[in-house]
Amino acid sequence: MLSAEEWGIVALSLKVGGVAVLATLPLAFALAWVLARYRFPGRLLLDALVHLPLVLPPVVTGWLLLVAFGPLGPIGSRLQDWLGVTLMFRWTGAALAAAIMALPLMVRAMRLSIEGIDRRLEGAARTLGAGRWHAFRTVSLPLALPGVLAALVLGFARSIGEFGATITFVSNIPGETQTLPLAIYSALQVPGAEAMVTRLALLSVALSLGALILSEWLVRRTHAERARHGD
């Protein structure tokens, strides 16, 4: 069905999306937790910053990444000097761009789920002998799990669909940074590649639709569970 080249594109997209989402998960969870549980000065600003990639033109996000992570950028030059790591024009850079674009969606999904946890259950765990950390691990985290899974699925779907920030930051290099949407864009420029465009586009639709349905199902499962014990 797909050619070897097309399978390579799919595999790269899955790798970029998977790494982006897994690497972002701890940060996204921490942000979701802080935004859901704490009131502090600057909370509104933090909330806005987290959501910024959702509304900013992706090309601007890409340009900001270029400025920060480029060889002369404040972060990029240090990564290069200290660790010998370059992100620009690499698949890791594509993963970084995808991660930043996926972050707002992931934080939103987990925050909803964390806000839905009955905090009195944590108090109950404490009176039963659980320290803060144990109560978090055995009560809060499992109860937030559907939101975490939904965030993973949504973030992954967003990541493999990322286009603007990616092409700006890491360009469109076959085999290195050319993910599914970038390959579709390239194929559109080539006469006679309509069949390839169609195949890759249908694949995109299927992946995105599957992710949306899966995450919606996970979220509904939480709500159903909550409704069952009358909350």
């Binding site: 108090g123 109950a124 009176t127 039963l128 002998g129 055995t138």
Partner: peptide
């Protein structure tokens, strides 16, 4: 802290852990 007080608390609404079966609820503490 609450976990060091050895105080058993029976709440008005039971407050059982919804993600654990009865046995796991009983054995939690």
């Amino acid at each position: 802290p609450p976990e060091a007080r050895r105080v058993g608390y029976v709440f008005q609404d039971g407050r059982l852990f919804p993600h654990r079966r009865v046995k796991a609820n009983l054995l939690y503490g």
